[in-house]
Nucleic acid binder design. Sequence first.
DNA 1: CTGAAAGCGCTAACAA
DNA 2: TTGTTAGCGCTTTCAG
Lengths: 344, 344
Amino acid sequence: MKFDTVTIKDIAKALNFSTSTVSRALRGSYEISAETKKLVLEYAEKINYRPNPIALSLKERRSQVIGVVVCEIANNFFSQAINGIESIAYNRGYHVIITQSHESAEREKVNVEHHASRSVDGLLISLSCETTDLTFLKDLHEKGLPIVFFDRITDEIDTHKVTANNYMGSFHATEHLIFQGFKKIAHITTSPSLSITNERLKGYADALAKHDIPYNKSLIKYCNHSGMIRQEIDELMDELFKQKTKPDAIFAAGDRITTLCLGYLKRMKQKKEVGFTGFTNTKVGELFDPPLTVVKQPAFEIGQTATELLIQMIESKRPVTEFTTKILETELIIRESSLKGVEV
Amino acid sequence: MKFDTVTIKDIAKALNFSTSTVSRALRGSYEISAETKKLVLEYAEKINYRPNPIALSLKERRSQVIGVVVCEIANNFFSQAINGIESIAYNRGYHVIITQSHESAEREKVNVEHHASRSVDGLLISLSCETTDLTFLKDLHEKGLPIVFFDRITDEIDTHKVTANNYMGSFHATEHLIFQGFKKIAHITTSPSLSITNERLKGYADALAKHDIPYNKSLIKYCNHSGMIRQEIDELMDELFKQKTKPDAIFAAGDRITTLCLGYLKRMKQKKEVGFTGFTNTKVGELFDPPLTVVKQPAFEIGQTATELLIQMIESKRPVTEFTTKILETELIIRESSLKGVEV
DNA sequence: CTGAAAGCGCTAACAA
DNA sequence: TTGTTAGCGCTTTCAG
């Protein structure tokens, strides 16, 4: 607490014990007489004593805090993942504090280092799309800070990772569009620097290949800001619809991108003509016009799994050296936006 | 940092100074020779020294951290408000850490006290709908912790408050429905314990009164969980449509409630018949079927304003005793969902 | 079973 | 200008 809070010292003084005795009584140390323990506990209760976690962190280098860094909480995937994180963490006695990078590499670094310097016990991170230099994370990792990557992961650091099966999610979504008869499927995706981008691109490409549809580079558009900036999407879409091979369907690779693309199509009155599906965890896909076909990620479970792995690392007696990468399956929810020739 | 980090002591040892000299040099104290300062600064840079904020907090009782407590980040209003908060805070050199109460009074208390005990410099809070006992906040406030309430505020604590003009927002929305010819306007709202609930209810009631429409209690439904639980909404809606006075329009008072009500109407195939408007900051209202009429709150600005006031309190030399309550105007965005007799 | 004392990293009052 | 010392709240050897 910040202001004139009761400390262990106050208890000691009032009860005429030493601070160490009080400390021991409070932590339920066995080497203390039942009577003293009772006395201390009761008095502490009475004056509403609360241990100071800052002092504890300084001493113990433990905080019972898990730091989370995501690009943006105003994103259905991440807010759901965070709920998964909290659901596990709180049950295991950890606090969760959340920070946003806003897709800025610099902000991400600042957040991570701030977490570390405030002694979080572990870090859960999904990388920003601007991030290229991972040394700040490597350093922390080498110093022994438990880190689990989720969603946007990296090969450069050897630790636990949890992500959706982006490859298969993308493959199925693309194949679904192909089954519907679409032939010129554009893929609007996130920054090429991200793991998810490549996984999804590969799924898309493999689905095309399987069905002998030529892979047309001009139908692939990267958003370097992953949908943070509307103008970027508008420009990409403009290009897309101005070039000679115009798409007959769009497959968007992210929550924000999906919404922005839809907005664009709506404004251009193309919503009904162009087949559409996207990676998004929105809960209101069925309320859209037309109802939205989506690739839904198990966001909550991803958050949970990442947190379980992290806590496992944190609480492990000896350094963990065996790491897993968990891949959770996505779900393709088919609604009208991807059905060919259906008028609502 | 957590593990074998360089401390001021290391620098002192290496350079053969005392720790205090190093400390002073680092903080740019004037009472230090230019040469020493240069030496220290350079060495610190070289070995990548980072001050330990935990130690600082313990000592200084300052942390350059602002704690935020909201019920839920998976809510357009709150995620936008948080972006407003961060936009100001980071420019002023504060870190922002976010926690969620999930509308649980207990969790809220835990989060608040955790923030306080980790020495946040100030607190930004929007109350959970379950909260009735505010003593934990009063205590902290009396001890001098700067607190600013936003959105869901309270009369019980005298401090700065920032909220939308819920009364007028609600009044205009209701009047708009009346202008459209709706006569049996149901109001689905949040928990009666919340400030916003009453403000919105009053706006609704006054709009009815102004147009001589009887206020019918059976058309008012409270969600005690503010839309966290779908079943609650479904039951309310069932009741609403089973009673003798069935609503011809619905006015929903929150982001989650809005979506859940819409989902219900959709499933009941009532979407086109029943007029609809709701408080929500969704960015995709126009993509809905039908496009959604909304009361939009200046969430970003609310976050910004609250943060400015908070930092002002934090940095004020003497205790602030004059408090303001800022009320920011909402915006009614009219789309088809509230237009009578329009078929899309 | 309990107390004294040191120390986590840092700052600041006091001395020199 | 610099060093010494105490102390923020707590835990933990080491003695008793």
